[in-house]
Design a binder for these strands. Structure first.
Length: 576
RNA sequence: CGGAGCGUAGCUCAGCCUGGUAGAGCACUUGCUUUGGGAGCAAGACGUCGCAGGUUCGAAUCCUGUCGCUCCGACCA
């Protein structure tokens, strides 16, 4: 490609709408343009990158034995009713109506479609295992699209689904995908690592997310450097952290006056001096419009993802002030669960053995002390409800946990038989028994991955593309492009030789000052640039500049081979 | 959906408080000069000031509504 014939609309300044580095660079490098919030056009160079990421994904999916299909983006709501997700997924749907006023759904994902397909096509254990994948546009009515391609209303996803005849076989399929993902991100030049993840209302058995560490990421990952434990904070656990002074002896409960002390911190200070870890935090939540109490230790926070799992529904919210008064007959500040019988009580495991605890008395200005939780409170269910915090002990090895932010670029889910049962994806096993297929599902946010690469690989000058996904591998920059100039003819020779050798090159034949060309090529992020200038050409030399790396002088006749060598080396590193 | 901020040239923004008929830089066009790190000079083109009402002799400016964008929160497979 000749630059003069391409459309690479670079910008010196960042549009005001962009907040994070990768979003700014996508716009500044002319890779995407916004149509509306969460909706973007891929410009020619941006599309080249996208296609390269897709190609890597396809190669690894094929290698893992998955079969590519292409399913409709438009889906009938009936299949969502059949799976039972029509209500729960309601909020993410874009719905359209045809001329007969029938409702259709723009697909946010394809479990229902693929399982319907498989129900009709696979009927024997002999046909299993089978995995399918597609690369396709998904539609989700995101409450708040942001950060360019990171969270968009319409985005490209690679989704894959595995069908197996047994749990053990499903585990094998899962592992294949897990391994494929590891290779995909490595080939994209991304540092991505797997973490244990919450299955949410997907109803799966377990799941891993592939995370790219980034301060701007929307996820928090809890990890341990000592034993490699890593989990999404929604799922992360830590050791119970039993303080030595959580009460040795049981004593009779005792109400005492705490005027004006309505918060954990207030009670922890003079004149009460009850440390936060000796208090019980009483939270009121409305679950499907009925109140429940959640008990946490005073120094702990509730993890609402874990609460979802415990309650078996995501339809809950913190109660309003009025609802609290209605439920407990007292205002927030002195809430407690002692003596409460008509409201279900869920308590964090950490509280189970604690004694001599202090909690609200359900009477303004009064608390109760010497509470032995198991003795004094009618707990309906004990559960791990705690949000893991920095410095707590790793539940595997006991070392202190750390937390960092990350971008989720992929997830793998072991689904079980939820969808195969709902959609009747049954097969006959060896004994002639009808069984539901055991499923897994596996997603990669393709457009998000593209942006994550930029977020991870950039500097003050622009993007630093890994060779595997760069829009062009080499940018050839003649400093003088006057017709007949030696710099131009040498550059053109490199251009044709490199392209003939399969090295994707772009020739910056614009009649621009050198500074402009250098800045543009670094902004767009081509991995290798060849500077053809009159000064070095007088010595029979040209410059090879590696983006983000060194500049070397080579003889004109050796330049093409040297570039090919660098390309080979860089690709080999990415292949691992 | 709650809170906050912003909508003026393709982009970044000033002007608004204190009403008087539209500005700068970058980008674009033409010419001359320049030519190894986002050039200089000169000339030029580009705006229903998001939209709709209202107040006023007069509205980019004040008021109301509305739409859009951004951020925080909630929400989110």
């Amino acid at each position: 490609m000749k630059w003069s014939q391409a459309l690479i609309p670079t910008l010196k300044e960042s549009p005001a709408e962009a907040e994070i580095a990768s979003h700014k660079l996508l716009l500044r490098a002319g890779l995407i343009r916004k149509l509306a919030g969460g909706l973007y056009t891929f410009m020619p160079l941006g599309l080249r990158v996208l296609r390269k990421v897709e190609r890597i994904i396809r190669e690894e999916m094929d290698r893992a034995g998955a079969l590519e299909v292409l399913m409709p983006a438009l889906q009938p709501p009936e299949i969502w009713q059949q799976s039972g997700r029509y209500e729960t997924a309601q909020d993410v749907f874009y719905k359209v109506r045809d001329r007969a006023k029938k409702e259709w759904i723009l697909g946010p994902t394809h479990e229902e479609v693929i399982t319907t397909l498989v129900a009709g096509e696979l009927s024997s254990y002999r046909q299993l295992p089978k995995s399918f994948y597609q690369v396709q546009t998904k539609f989700r009515d995101e409450i708040r699209p942001r950060f360019g391609l990171m969270r968009a209303k319409e985005f490209i996803m690679k989704d894959a689904y595995s069908f197996d005849s047994s749990d053990e076989a499903s585990q094998v399929s899962y592992q294949k995908m897990y391994d494929a993902y590891t290779r995909i991100f490595q080939r994209c030049g991304l540092q991505a690592f797997p973490v244990e993840a919450d299955t949410g209302v997907m109803g799966g058995k377990f799941s891993h997310e592939f995370m790219v560490p980034a301060e701007t990421g929307e996820n928090e990952v809890v990890y341990c450097e000592a034993c490699n434990y890593a989990a999404n904070i929604e799922k992360a656990t830590s050791r119970h952290m039993m303080h030595s002074d959580l009460g040795e002896t049981e004593q009779a409960i005792e109400k005492f006056a705490t005027p004006g002390a309505g918060k954990i911190e207030a009670l922890a200070k003079e004149p009460f001096n009850v440390p936060a870890h000796r208090q019980i935090k009483t939270l009121v939540y409305m679950v499907e419009d009925k109140p429940v109490l959640i008990l946490m230790r005073g120094d702990h926070k509730l993890n609402e993802s874990k609460l979802t799992g415990t309650l078996g529904t995501a339809t809950f919210r913190a109660a309003t002030g009025e609802e609290i008064v209605e439920s407990l007959k007292t205002r927030p500040g002195s809430l407690g669960a002692v003596g409460v019988k008509d409201i279900p009580i869920y308590a964090d495991e950490t509280l189970r053995e604690t004694k001599q605890m202090t909690t609200g008395a359900n009477e303004d200005g009064f608390h109760i002390r010497n509470v032995s939780v198991s003795r004094d409170i009618e707990v309906k269910q004990w559960a791990d409800l705690r949000l893991a915090q920095v410095g707590e002990e790793c539940s595997k090895c006991g070392q202190p946990l750390k937390i960092r932010r990350a971008i989720e670029v992929g997830h793998v889910f072991k689904l079980g038989t939820k969808y195969s049962i709902a959609m009747n994806a049954l097969f006959l096993d060896e004994a002639g028994n009808r069984q539901p297929a055991v499923m897994g599902c596996y997603g990669i946010g393709v457009t998000r991955t593209m942006q994550a690469i930029i977020e991870q690989l950039n500097d003050k000058d622009g993007i630093i593309w890994p060779l595997s996904v760069a829009p062009y591998q080499v940018c050839i920059t003649p400093l003088n492009v006057a017709s007949g100039a030696p710099t131009l003819s040498v550059a053109e020779k490199f251009y044709s030789e490199l392209n003939a050798a399969g090295v994707e090159s772009i020739l910056d034949d614009r009649d621009e000052r050198p500074g402009v060309k250098f800045k543009d090529s670094e902004l767009v992020g081509f991995p290798i640039r060849i500077n053809v200038g009159e000064k070095s050409l007088a010595n029979g030399e040209v410059e090879i500049k590696v983006r983000g790396g060194e500049m070397i002088l080579v003889k004109v006749e050796e330049a093409v081979e040297k570039v090919r060598e660098i390309v080979r080396e860089k690709l080999a590193n990415l292949a691992g």
